[in-house]
Simulated scan of single mutants.
Amino acid sequence: MSTGHAPTGDGARPQRPEPRPEATAPPRADSEWNYRVRHETPTQRLDRNWSHILQELRVVQTGMQILTGFLLTLPFQQRFSDLQAFEKDLYLITLAMSTAATIVLVSPVAMHRLLFRRHALPVLVEQGQRFAVTGLLLLGGALTGVLTPTFDVVVNKTTGLIAGGCAVLLAITLWCCYPLLFAHQLHLGRPEKQPDEPQHPRNHH
């Protein structure tokens, strides 16, 4: 007499859910890739994206705050009054861009505090991305503005303008063109919009 247990239910053992077939997902869909490779829910994905944004902003904020603090001290230096009108105008523009960059880069943190426990993480991730890109643009302008008058005072105005132009070209190349070139070569496509609602995987029979 057999002592084995008879199968229950449909007569099959419980099995782990099989990975989602490739054919059921749109090609190169980021959410589908996260599900297949990371086994990550949309909420977990938002948490990870938000954590990455905060880490990146933390790196940029430190240098931006130091630069802004340095610029704020320049008018109180003895030789500041010796600057020409062009140099003073460029200084004010640089200070404005540096201050704006600092405010923009801190904005995601302020949004997070005001929207805390309101289930607004999709909005925070989307707006945090925009603030980060805007802050980097302002940072590039501020760095250019610092470099131009420095070369102007040390060498001459022409050299200062050339140095500023080189800084702009380098920032555009490394911050914009280089990543976009990789995206084009790897056929990465455009970033996928964050889901507003948590989505559950569909069952396939």
Rank of each mutant, 00 (worst) to 15 (best):
L139E: 05
L143V: 12
A132G: 03
G141C: 04
T158S: 05
V133P: 08
L137I: 11
V146E: 07
T158K: 08
L143A: 07
V133T: 13
F131W: 12
G164W: 03
V125Q: 00
G140R: 08
T148C: 01
L139A: 05
A163E: 00
T144R: 06
A142C: 04
L136N: 14
L147C: 07
C166R: 03
L143E: 12
L136D: 00
L138R: 08
T158R: 09
A132I: 04
T144E: 06
F131H: 12
D152P: 02
R130I: 10
V125W: 02
T158Y: 02
T159W: 10
T150G: 01
G164K: 00
T144C: 09
T148V: 10
F131R: 03
G145F: 05
L124A: 06
A167R: 04
Q129L: 03
L137E: 00
K157Q: 11
L169A: 15
A132C: 06
Q129V: 07
V133F: 13
F151W: 09
L138G: 03
L138W: 08
A163H: 01
T158F: 12
A167T: 15
T159L: 06
L147M: 15
A132D: 01
V168W: 05
V154Q: 10
P149M: 03
D152T: 15
Q129E: 08
Q129P: 11
F131T: 03
L143Q: 06
L137A: 15
V155M: 13
L143K: 08
F151D: 06
L161W: 14
L169D: 08
P149S: 13
A142S: 11
T144Q: 10
T148S: 11
G135R: 03
V154H: 02
L143H: 00
V154T: 09
G145R: 08
V154G: 09
T159P: 00
L147P: 01
V155F: 07
N156C: 09
V168L: 13
T158G: 12
Q129F: 05
L161S: 00
G145S: 07
G135S: 06
L169C: 08
G145L: 13
V125D: 06
E126T: 14
T148P: 02
L136M: 13
F151S: 02
V146W: 06
T150Y: 08
G128N: 05
V168C: 13
L169I: 12
V168Y: 07
D152F: 15
G135N: 13
T134E: 13
G135M: 00
L161A: 12
